[in-house]
Design a protein around this nucleic acid. Structure first.
Length: 302
DNA sequence: TCACGTCAAGCAGAT
DNA sequence: ATCTGCTTGACGTGA
C-alpha cells in the first residue's frame, strides 16, 4: 500500500541545479563534462533533500546531459560517468524512490517528418540510457504524449503504433503514454495501450480539460489496469488550473482542497503522484502534510 | 558588471 | 504568415 508524492526536475530550496546547460555554439567536451559533473552531483543532493522530506517520487530533468542525443556530442558520456550514475542509482534503490523522465514537446513518435522521428528516437534512447546507467528496474519510466494529430487522428495513432515497434528495447520497456490537454484523451491512450501493451500515465489536470467524460474514479478504474507487475504502481500527474491565467497554465501553488478531493476520490488505489506545480518542492511539502493522514501514504522514518 | 535577446528540437491555435 | 503557449530560466554577448 503506498502513495508517493513527487515534483518535477527542479528544487528551489537547495542551492544547486541539476539542469544546467550551455549554448550549442559553445559546445566542447570540457564544457560538457563540467556541466554534467555539476548536474549529477546536484541530482543526488536533490534526492537527499527529498528523502529527508518524505518526497519519494522524482522526475529527472531531460537536461541532465545537455546535447546527449545531438550529433555534436561524440563524447562517450555513458562510460565517463558510469560510476556517478551507479552511485545515484544505488541511492534511489536503497531508499525505494520512484523515478520518471519526461522528454519535452519536440519528441514525437507519430511525427510525419522522418527527420523529427530520427531525432526523437535518439533522444528517447538517451533518456533510457540514463535510467539504465543507474541500473533502475522497469518501474522507472519515460512518459510521453502521443503527439500531433496532423489532421488525421486515426492515421497518427496508427503511425504511433507502427513506430513504437521500431524503438530500441531499452526505450520500449520504459515508455508510458500520457493523456494530453488538447489532442489525445485517456480513451485514446487506453486504445493504444491495448494494442502495444504499455501503461497509461494519467494526468488529472489534462483530463479535466480534455476527456470523453469519465469521472476521476472511473478513469482510475481504467488506467490503473494498464500497470502490471514490473511496471510498478500506476503513475499520476497532478496539477490544478492557474488562477486568472491561460486555460492550460499550471497553478503557482497547490490547491490543497482540490488535492485532498483527489485523494478521497481515488481510494483505495495505490499510485505515485507527480505535482506539476510551479513552486515545485514547496507545494510538494504541503501535499505530503495533507497526505500524511492517508493510510496509503508511504512514510519515512527520519 | 549588467541588460536583454535568445536559446536544439514541433505542434496547434490564435491573430 | 507570424506569433504564442507548452515551461521557464539563464546563457552569454555586447555595451
Amino acid at each position: 500500500m503506498e502513495i508517493r508524492i513527487g515534483y518535477p526536475c527542479i528544487n528551489w530550496t537547495i542551492g544547486c541545479k541539476a539542469d544546467r546547460t550551455f549554448r550549442l555554439k559553445s559546445y566542447s567536451e570540457e564544457r560538457l563534462v563540467k556541466i554534467v559533473e555539476n548536474n549529477l552531483d546536484c541530482l543526488l543532493e536533490i534526492l537527499r533533500f527529498n528523502l529527508r522530506h518524505s518526497l519519494l517520487f522524482f522526475r529527472i530533468t531531460s537536461d541532465l546531459v545537455p546535447f546527449a542525443s545531438h550529433p555534436v556530442c561524440q563524447f562517450n558520456w555513458q562510460e565517463h560517468f558510469t560510476k556517478q550514475f551507479k552511485k545515484i542509482g544505488d541511492f534511489i534503490k536503497t531508499n525505494d524512490i520512484r523515478i520518471s523522465m519526461h522528454p519535452d514537446q519536440f519528441i514525437l513518435i507519430d511525427t510525419v517528418d522522418d527527420r523529427v522521428w530520427e531525432k526523437s528516437r535518439r533522444e528517447l534512447v538517451y533518456h533510457a540510457q540514463v535510467l539504465e546507467l543507474m541500473e533502475l528496474d522497469t518501474s522507472a519510466r519515460i512518459q510521453l504524449h502521443v503527439g500531433g494529430v496532423y489532421g488525421d487522428k486515426k492515421g497518427s495513432i496508427k503511425r504511433f503504433v507502427e513506430r513504437f515497434q521500431k524503438l530500441e528495447d531499452i526505450v520500449k520497456r520504459r515508455l508510458v503514454i500520457e493523456n494530453d490537454d488538447k489532442n489525445y484523451t485517456l480513451e485514446d491512450c487506453l486504445r493504444i495501450s491495448d494494442e502495444i501493451g504499455i501503461p497509461v500515465l494519467f494526468d488529472v489536470f489534462h483530463h479535466e480539460l480534455n476527456s470523453s467524460g469519465e469521472t476521476v474514479p472511473e478513469a482510475f478504474q481504467l488506467f490503473t489496469e494498464t500497470w502490471k507487475g514490473k511496471d510498478g504502481i500506476p503513475m499520476v500527474d497532478y496539477s490544478s488550473q492557474k488562477k486568472g491565467g491561460t486555460k492550460s497554465g499550471h497553478a503557482v501553488s497547490i490547491d490543497l482542497t482540490h488535492f485532498k478531493k483527489l485523494l478521497a476520490e481515488t481510494e483505495p488505489f495505490d499510485f505515485d503522484v507527480m505535482l506539476e506545480i510551479k513552486d515545485k518542492e514547496k507545494s510538494a511539502l504541503k501535499a505530503v502534510k495533507a497526505a500524511s493522514q492517508d493510510y496509503r501514504f508511504k512514510k519515512i522514518a527520519v
